[in-house]
Write a protein that binds this DNA or RNA. Structure first.
Lengths: 245, 245, 245, 245
DNA sequence: GTGGTCTAGACCACA
DNA sequence: GTGGTCTAGACCACT
C-alpha cells in the first residue's frame, strides 16, 4: 500500500518572482494582447500592475529583450516596444504541439464544467435568470451585426464581453458557487486569450446561444447541455482549423 | 467594457516554499492519502520527496501542527502522526442540516467533474492506468472483506485511502491536469467530514468500482460515466438518509 | 529541614541561542543603549557581534518586532529601528500612582546597589575606568548644553544614553559581575518608563556626576557613595514631585 | 558615541545541556555536597532531578568519570561513587585563585544587599516581623547549644537552616520584593555551599544575630546595618582564614 | 546594500 | 534514528 502514498507528495519548486513576470508578459505577447509595434506600459506601471518592484520588472524585461520579443529604448520617449517575432519553423511546430495539448485540455475542461452547469441551469433557472440572459442575447445580436457591418473593433470587443457574460450567466443560473467559479476560471484562462488571438467573431455563435437559452427556458437539461457542448465544440473546431493552417 | 483585456497582466505573488509544502501536505491529508493514526514520512524523507530542505519542511510541519492536523513526537520512534479531526457527531449533523445547500452543491460539482473525468478516462486510459486501477481495486477488496470480517478500523482506514486513490486514479487517466485538480478539490472538501462522520463502509462501493473500471477498460465512455454518476448518487443518498434520521 | 541541601542539584535548562539574543537586545534597549529612533546594527553586523548566525538573529528580531520594541524596514536604507514605546502620559501617571509602592521599592533598590557599587568602585577603579567615565562625562556635557541650547531631541536622547552608560560604567569599575547585573537590572526597570515620561533633562545631573567621579578618582569610597545616594534621591524627588502635580 | 554601543552587545554562547549538568555536578562534588565514598543518586534519579534525559546524564557522568571525580560501577549494586580527589598542588592553587575572586565578589555583593536590607528593615519592621525573628533566634540558640554539646550533625543542619531563615526574615522586614530576591539569591549561591564545605558552626554567630535584631527593634538603621556588615565580615574572615591554611 | 528565504550539513537531546 | 536547533552561505526582492 505504500506505493499509494508515493504519488501523494510531489517535489515543490518555488518560482522566482521575475520568472513569473516573464511568463505573464511572454504569454500576453504570444497571445497578441500586445501587438508588434505597440508600446508596453512603462516600467513603473508594470511594477504596479504586477505588484512587484521595478527591479523585478527590469529583470523580466531583460530576459524578454534577450529573447528578441521586445525592444528597450532609453531616455525621453523611450520605453518597451513589442518586436515582430522572427519565425523559426521548427520552433513554431514545437510551440504548436505544446499548445495543442493545452488547448485540448482547456476545451475538455470547459465542456465538462459548462455543459454540467447548463444541465443544472435548465433545471433551476428562475425568471430573473432568463430575463438577464435574454437581455445579453439581444445585446450580442446588436453588437454582432454592428461589428460585421462596420468592421468595428469596438463592437467586436463588446460582443466578446457580452458573450462571456452570457456563459457566466448560465453558470449563475445553475446556483452552484463552486461551479460558477470553475466556469469563470475555465473561461478566464482560455477564452480571453483565444479571443484575443483571433480578434474576430464566430458569426453563428448567436444561433447557438439562442438555442441553448431556449432549452434552458423550456427546462430541457439534456437538450441544453447537448447544445452547449455543440457550441463549444464548434469554437474548438474553428480554433483547430486555424492552428492547422 | 474594454477593460476585459486589462486582465492580460495580473499581480504576481511569489509563494514561499514552506507554504507550497503546507498546501501539498494539507491536500494529501484532506484527500485521505494519510489517515488519522498513520505516521507521515520522517522530516528527512519529506525533505527528499518534496525536494526542499529540512528547515522548509519544519516550517510547514509547524503550521500543520498548530492547526491540529498532525501531532509531533520526538525521539526514537517519534515522528509525525496524523491526528483524528475532532468533531462531535451531533454538532456535525446540525452543521450539515444547516448546510444542506452546501452538500447539494458539493455533490453536484463532484458528479460533473468526476463523470466528466471518467468519460475522458475511458477514451484515454493506458495500460499503466488500468494496472494501477486494478491494483487499487484488489486492495480495496481485501481491505473491505477484512474490515467487515474483523471489524478492523485499520482496514476501514485502508479502504478509504484506496477508495480516494481509485477515484483520483481515474481522473489521472483522463490526462487533464486541470480536471485532476478539480476532482481532487471536489473530493477534499467532502472527504474529511464525510469520511469522518461515517467512519464506515459502503459495502457495495466495490461493485460500482468494478463496473466503472470495466467500462473504462472496454473504452465505453458513456457507460463508464453513467456508472460513476450512479455510484456518486448512491453515496449522496446514503448521506442524505443519514441526515434525515 | 534537611531538604535545604536538596537544592544542591537543580533542574537544568538549555536556553536557545535566539532567546539569549533576545535577552541581550532587550536589555540593551531597556538600558537605553539604543534609543527610540536609533538604527540598530544590521542583521549581518549583529550576527557578527553576537557570534551567531543570521538565522538566529532573525529569530530574535522577530520576537522584538512582535513586541513592538523595534521596527523592521526592508530594502536599501532599511534595517531595524528602535520604536518609541507607546504610552499615554495621563495613563502612566495613574499607573504610577497606583504603583507608588513599586517606585519606592525600585528607588530603594537602586540606592542600595548603586551606592554599594560606587563605594567599591572608589576603591578599585583603574585608569581605564576613569578615562572611560571622563569621556562619558564630557559627552554628557556637550549633549546637555546642545540639548538645552537647541531644544534638540536627539541630544536629549544622547544625554540619556550617556547617562545610562556612566552609571553602568561605575558599576563596571566595581569589578563585580553580580553587582553589575544588579545595577543593570535596577536601571532597566526604571529606565524606559521614567526616561520616556520625562523625555527631559535634569540640568544639574552633571554636577552630581562630576562630584561622584571626583570622589571615585580620589579613592574616597564613602564620599562617592554619599554623592551617588544624593544624586539618586534627587531624581527620586523630581519624579515624586511630578507624580504629585 | 558609537563606542558606547560597542559594549552593549556581547557574544552569545549556547551551552549544551550535558555541560550544564557537568557543571552542576562538579560544583556539588567540589563543594562537598557529596563526599568521597558517597553514592550519587541513580542515573534515573539524576535525570529526574535535573530534568534532562538519561542520555544527557550519561554524557555528563562520562566526563566526570574521565576526570576521576566519580567511579562508575555497572550491574546490580552498581552506580556512581564519589572518588577521593587526587590533589595536584598547582591545580589547587589555580582553583584557589579562581575561588578567591569569586568569594570576594560574593561577599561584597552580600554585604551590599544584606546591609541595605537591614537598614531598611530597621525603619520598617512591624511587630509580626519582630516576633518571627525572635522565634528564629531562640530556635538557633537551642540548636547551637545542642549541636555543640552533642556534636550532632542534625542540629548543625538545623542551625544553618534557621540562620538562613533569619537573614531572609530581615530582608522580608525591609518590605521590598526585589531586595528580598537579591538577598535570597546572594545567600543561595554562596551560603549553602560554603556552609556545606565547612559543615561547622560559627559559635558567636548568635551574638551578632541578637545585636542586629536589637538594633532593628530599636529602629536604629545605621547601627543595625553596621552590625550586619560586621557579622558578614566575620564570616568572610573565617572563610578566608581557612582558605589560607 | 538592506532584510527575506532557502539550502545543506552539522550537532544535539530524546526515547 | 527521531525531531530540535544552529550555522554558513547563497540568492532574491526591495528601496
Amino acid at each position: 500500500m505504500s506505493d499509494v502514498h508515493a504519488s501523494a507528495l510531489s517535489p515543490v519548486r518555488q518560482i522566482p518572482a521575475h520568472e513569473l513576470v516573464v511568463d505573464q508578459m511572454r504569454l500576453a505577447l504570444e497571445l497578441g494582447q500586445f501587438r508588434p509595434g505597440d508600446r508596453l506600459p512603462t516600467e513603473r506601471e508594470l511594477a504596479e500592475i504586477l505588484d512587484v518592484s521595478r527591479t523585478t520588472v527590469r529583470a523580466a524585461v531583460a530576459v524578454l529583450e534577450r529573447e528578441g520579443l521586445i525592444a528597450v529604448r532609453r531616455g525621453r520617449g523611450g520605453g518597451f516596444t513589442v518586436q515582430a517575432p522572427v519565425y523559426d519553423a521548427a520552433e513554431m511546430r514545437r510551440e504548436f504541439r505544446r499548445n495543442k495539448r493545452a488547448i485540448r485540455d482547456a476545451f475538455d475542461y470547459r465542456i465538462i464544467v459548462e455543459t454540467g452547469a447548463t444541465r443544472l441551469a435548465a433545471g433551476r433557472r428562475r425568471a430573473a435568470d432568463l430575463n438577464e440572459l435574454h437581455k445579453l442575447l439581444r445585446g450580442m445580436d446588436t453588437a454582432l451585426h454592428t461589428a460585421l457591418a462596420e468592421q468595428s473593433a469596438q463592437h467586436t470587443n463588446d460582443f466578446q464581453t457580452l458573450d462571456s457574460a452570457f456563459h457566466l450567466g448560465i453558470a449563475q443560473a445553475a446556483q452552484n458557487d463552486r461551479l460558477l467559479d470553475a466556469v469563470a476560471d475555465a473561461r478566464r484562462r482560455m477564452w480571453l486569450p483565444v479571443g484575443a488571438i483571433f480578434g474576430r467573431l464566430e458569426p453563428n455563435a448567436n444561433d447557438y446561444h439562442e438555442a441553448i437559452l431556449e432549452a434552458i427556458e423550456n427546462r430541457e437539461p439534456e437538450l441544453a447541455a447537448a447544445r452547449m457542448e455543440e457550441h463549444i465544440n464548434d469554437t474548438r473546431q474553428t480554433i483547430e482549423a486555424w492552428l492547422k493552417r
